[in-house]
Structure formats: structure tokens, C-alpha cells
Design a binder for these strands. Structure first.
Length: 568
RNA sequence: AGGGAUGUAGCCAAGUGGUUUAAGGCAUCGGCCUUUGGAGCCGACAUUCGCAGGUUCGAAUCCUGCCAUCCCUGCCA
């Protein structure tokens, strides 16, 4: 077996099924999947997992993947969502060619299938009300009661179903039900409704129909019509599989295989359309594309790349075990990607003025800075340097603890790509005692950041020239929830009780000049701080707003923490 | 009279009776290196696979029983 073939083996149970099917030629060598969203909301990272799975499998095995909208409920669905979903799947980097379908495209065919079921004596028109259907369904432990309309003649059913279609009955007056088994331990098999009356305008078929097929009936037949081989869905549909199979078997049509996997859960966030909608409606976030939202649009605005999301989907794996993936894995994926690609820049978020006493008052030097140490092909840039600078307040301490190797009285540090400086004096506000500026001297021999005598400095810090930098709005985002699993609520609470009140902090930073021209969606690493993306909503030409995608890993904060803990 | 699933480290997840003395990733902890305390590199991290029995020369993998968790009583998908 070659390395390549080994690589193809397993990795997850769905691949295993496909590899086996290919071996046995079950589908004539074909692999054909589909991503079937209902256009009733925006896509989130959980959908991304499914998208990557379905499109990825097709790609890997030389097959195809359709985009199909499961639009059988006109009162919930909308074209706005269709367009948003198309845009999001494209942005993730997937292509469905000319195979964008709508379940509503199949309404005529589906109607014919229903008629066939009636003719076979496998479906009937039921006059029971919603409440009566519920009451006769039985419970988890008791069988249901057969509908009094269950044994209508084929002719009567045909006529009634036709009249339902024509709009002769009001909403909810009648349903078409599959005649299966009211005593089945699987509730889905207790004569499920397959058509209901809804006098509603559909976003695609308009007012052509007033009866709409249910999911179970529609989905399997849509898969069949599109000649899907592997119909991949989430675990909660496992109980529906017997019904999926039943319709296809009764009708004797092409029969794909339904395979279920566990949906994604991510720590410190929620991934249900209902809860996400609630965050939007209550104004807790700034809309579906708020950078804190786990939606595709939110992640995009936050600065996540399609590649990082696809890589995430790949490394978390696919299984049938319900689990919560640590959001640190997602954060790792974006750091890993941006580390190799993002242009570096100097931005000071909490400025402290530094004056270099022995530096000429009016001199300005252009320092050469590497744009990306991980990719030298990205070149260098010039950063202006002068007598007065800003550094990060955290990078100076009057009484530093051990292991602190940044600036402190009498200490020498390197200003990255510039000079070594030594702190000579600290100026404080006489009222508050707050440090307002720090005086230093520089060593002219260390230009560029290295010394001819080879002496070492422990710390390297970033800086901006006070005269040349410009103020920028920087939005520091953090996790939306303070609880690892916000779905796990204590008595009397809701997931909203675990919102992180500090998930957004807006600051004004001082940025080096070239950042002024940054365009929406451009991503940067602010050295020693984190990765940032130009906001696509609030930025204006010449006035970029930066969203923090994720911080850089911060070893010092860990040392600090353990230092504090050992002091306690 | 319930049915359907799942249990491998803090979190994901390979493994499908014998080179497994249980891959890989995240996290964590050491060390090296470093003009980002970033990145990179090296190392540590399950005598054990929900539990208890059994089969076998040999079991995470097969059998039996038990336990835990999740899903199912929409004319939602």
C-alpha cells in the first residue's frame, strides 16, 4: 500500500464508509454530497464544519457537492438568507458549479410522489386537528391511536389531496399523512405528516402552492432526485433515518445513504440559530456580523481567514460523539495562518512617552523594519524614528519583579529595528503620582538594533515616533461568554446570564504611518500584541478601525500570574 | 412499551483481536533558541481505553451484564 493510499484510509468514519463504497463499487465510483441549509438564518462555524465536510469529501474523492436550499417552509424562509448563505459558502472557498438547487424546484415532482403513495395505499388525507394529532400520537412509552381517517379509499384520498392543492381548505384543516405504524417505538414512524396546508407566499414559488411538503418527505426525495450518494447530516436525524429509507423504498426510487455525525459545539460561545438571534435582537451584539459572533460573517469581520476555518474543520475531526471543542483550537488555527501571512506593524495601545535626551531635537531617521520575519519575500518598510516616542505602558516598570526584562530605571532595552536605550529618569505627575514620561539615552552605535560589541539586552520592545504616529480606533474583542458551556445553565438562569461584560473594549492607539492606508479586511500583526483586521463596517478611507482577531501568545502574562500566585 | 445513539488523557481524536510497551492536534509543564517573552526546536504528559465479568496463547478492539450522557411525543428543519 502506498503512502498516498494509507493517507486515504479512515481519519474518520465517514471517509471509511466512502473508501469502502469505492472499493465495492456501490455507487459506480461516484461520490456526490450536498450541503442543504434552510434559508432561515445566517451560517455559523457549525455549518462551516458541515460545509467543509461535504465539499471536502467530494473534492478529495473526485466527486461533486451540491448546494441545496431546503426551503419547504415559506413562513420562515427568505431570499435575504439565500443570498447571505451563497456569499458565505463562496467566501469559505467552495464551488458548486451550476449545481445550486432548491427543494422548492422539486415541488411538482414531490406532489407526484405523494400521489403515488396515495395510490399505493401508503398515504391518506387526515382531518384531525393539530391538537388531535398530538393527542393520538401516543407517548414515548405508549403507542399512538390510529386516525379515524386512516382507511379512506384511494379515490377519496386522491380527490381530497387534489382539493387541498387547489386551496379549497383553510390552513391546518387537513394533512396528508404516511400510513406506517401508530405503534412504532420510533415516533417518526407514527403516520407522520408529509404535507400541510399553508396559504403563504413562498420566496421562490410565490403563490403557486398552498400545500407544502415536510422535511422528511422532501429531503430524502431531493437527495434521490439529485442522485446523492452520501447524505450527511447531524445526529438528531438518526431517528429519522428509518423514515428516510421508508419513503425511498416504498417509491422504489434511487436510494442514497444517510450518515449522521455530531454537530460542532465550541466552548465560550453558543451555536444555535435561536440563541444567536436572541443576541442580535436584544442588542447584545451589533448584528449577525458582529466580530464576536461565531457566524461566518462575524468571524470574517473579526479577521478569520477562510483557510484557518477550513483547517479548523479538518483538525477537529468528525465523529458521532457529542463534544465541545475548546475555542483555543480555533484561535490556534488563525494564529497559525496569520503568523505566516500577516504584515507586521507597530502600534502602541497604552502609550507612555519616552524622551531620548541625547538624541538630536530635529533629527528624523528612517528605520528598516522587516514586514514579516516568517516570509522575507514580503520585504521591508521604513519606520520614522525621532527624539520623542511612545512605548507601551506595560513595557516600563519603576520597580520591576524578577524575570521582567523590559525597561526600568537604569536598564537597557532594544527598541526594535532602532536603538538600544537606557532609562535615566522617570517623571511623575506630582498630584497623582502617575508616570507621565520616561527619559532615556540611546547608544548611536546600536542603530538597527544590534551592538558592535555584541552585548546582550534582555528585552526588545516596540515603539512609534510621537511626531509621526497617528491615533487609531482599536477594538479589543474577547470571548462572548464567561462560562465554558453557556448552554449548561443553572437553575433559574439562562445563557444570557453568562455574557462576558468585557467582550469589547474600544481604545485609541498610536499607529505607525503606513497603517493609515489600510483597507477593509486587511490583516496585520501588531507586533507583540496580536492580529488585527480592518473593520469593514466602521472604517473610512484614511481612518481605519482595527478589530482584534486574537492576541499573540503571551508568555509573560503567564509568568506574572504564577509569580502572583506564589506570592499569595 | 419505549426507541435511537455515544463513552479512549483537561479538550478534540486515531485505533476495527497480535510490530499499539494506545497515533496526531489543542491546552498544560520543563528546556533550547530568538532584534516580537511571537515564531521555531526538543522533551514531559492514558501500565490504560465508562464499570464488572467472560471468550482467547493474546482484547480498547469479540460476548454478557451494568452505569453515565445525549436525542426523539412540531402541520420546524
Amino acid at each position: 500500500m502506498s503512502e498516498e493510499e494509507k493517507e486515504r484510509i479512515a481519519r474518520n468514519f465517514i471517509r471509511q464508509i466512502i473508501i469502502e463504497d469505492l472499493k465495492t463499487n456501490k455507487w459506480g465510483g461516484r461520490v456526490h454530497t450536498r450541503f442543504p441549509p434552510e434559508p432561515n438564518g445566517y451560517l455559523h462555524i457549525g455549518h462551516a464544519k458541515s460545509i467543509c465536510l461535504n465539499f471536502g469529501l467530494a473534492e478529495e474523492f473526485g466527486g461533486l457537492c451540491n448546494l441545496r436550499f431546503d426551503d419547504t417552509n415559506p413562513t420562515k424562509e427568505d431570499e435575504e438568507y439565500v443570498n447571505a448563505i451563497i456569499e458565505d459558502v463562496r467566501w469559505l472557498g467552495f464551488d458548486w458549479g451550476d449545481r445550486m438547487y432548491f427543494a422548492s424546484d422539486y415541488f411538482d415532482q414531490l406532489y407526484e410522489y405523494a400521489v403515488r403513495l396515495i395510490k399505493m395505499g401508503k398515504a391518506y388525507v387526515c382531518d384531525l386537528s393539530q391538537e388531535e394529532i398530538r393527542q393520538t400520537r401516543g407517548t414515548l412509552t405508549e403507542p399512538g391511536i390510529e386516525s379515524p381517517y386512516r382507511n379512506r379509499s384511494v379515490e377519496e384520498n386522491l380527490e381530497l389531496f387534489e382539493r387541498m392543492r387547489k386551496g379549497e381548505f383553510p390552513d391546518f384543516a387537513k394533512t396528508l399523512r404516511a400510513k406506517i405504524d401508530m405503534a412504532s417505538p420510533n415516533l417518526n414512524m407514527r403516520d407522520p405528516v408529509i404535507y400541510r396546508i399553508k396559504h403563504a407566499t413562498h420566496h421562490r414559488t410565490g403563490d403557486k402552492w398552498c400545500i407544502y411538503p415536510m422535511y422528511d418527505f422532501t429531503h430524502c426525495l431531493s437527495d434521490s432526485i439529485e442522485r446523492i450518494t452520501h447524505s450527511i447530516c447531524t445526529l438528531e436525524f438518526e431517528d429519522h433515518r428509518p423514515l428516510y429509507d421508508w419513503f425511498l423504498d416504498q417509491l422504489g426510487v434511487y436510494h442514497p445513504q444517510q450518515i449522521e455525525f455530531a454537530r460542532l459545539n465550541l466552548s465560550y460561545t453558543v451555536l444555535s440559530k435561536r440563541k444567536l438571534l436572541e443576541l442580535v435582537q436584544r442588542g447584545i451584539v451589533d448584528g449577525w456580523d458582529d466580530p464576536r459572533m461565531p457566524t461566518i460573517r462575524g468571524l470574517r469581520r473579526r479577521g478569520y481567514t477562510p483557510e484557518s476555518i477550513r483547517n479548523f474543520a479538518e483538525i477537529i475531526g468528525v465523529s458521532k460523539k457529542e463534544s465541545i471543542v475548546d475555542i483555543a483550537v480555533l484561535e490556534h488555527c488563525i494564529r497559525d495562518d496569520l503568523n505566516k501571512r500577516a504584515q507586521r506593524a507597530f502600534v502602541v495601545l497604552n502609550p507612555l512617552k519616552v524622551i531620548i535626551d541625547n538624541y538630536p531635537d530635529d533629527l528624523v531617521e528612517e528605520m528598516d523594519a522587516i514586514n514579516n520575519p516568517e516570509d522575507l519575500s514580503m520585504g521591508t518598510r521604513k519606520v520614522p524614528f525621532s527624539k520623542e516616542l511612545y512605548i507601551e505602558r506595560d513595557d516600563f516598570m519603576e520597580n520591576p519583579p524578577k524575570k521582567y526584562y523590559r525597561l526600568a530605571p537604569g536598564r537597557e532595552v532594544r527598541l526594535r529595528y532602532a536603538y538600544y536605550i537606557t532609562c535615566t529618569d522617570v517623571v511623575k505627575d506630582p498630584q497623582t503620582g502617575e508616570i507621565v514620561e520616561v527619559h532615556c539615552t540611546y547608544d548611536p552605535a546600536t542603530r538597527g538594533g544590534s551592538s558592535p560589541d555584541g552585548r546582550k539586552v534582555l528585552g526588545t520592545i516596540h515603539w512609534v515616533s510621537a511626531r509621526h504616529c497617528f491615533p487609531v480606533e482599536v477594538r479589543l474583542y474577547d470571548r462572548l461568554f464567561i462560562k465554558e458551556n453557556p448552554n449548561d445553565v443553572e437553575e433559574g438562569k439562562t445563557f444570557l446570564d453568562y455574557i462576558n461584560p468585557n467582550s469589547l473594549e474600544i481604545k485609541t492607539g498610536y499607529a505607525e504611518p503606513f497603517l493609515k492606508d489600510a483597507k477593509p479586511e486587511e490583516r496585520f500583526q501588531f507586533e507583540r500584541i496580536g492580529y488585527f483586521c480592518v473593520d469593514s463596517k466602521y472604517s473610512k478611507p484614511g481612518k481605519p478601525v482595527f478589530n482584534r482577531t486574537v492576541t499573540l501568545k503571551d508568555t509573560w502574562s503567564k509568568i506574572l500570574k504564577s509569580l502572583q500566585e506564589s506570592n499569595e
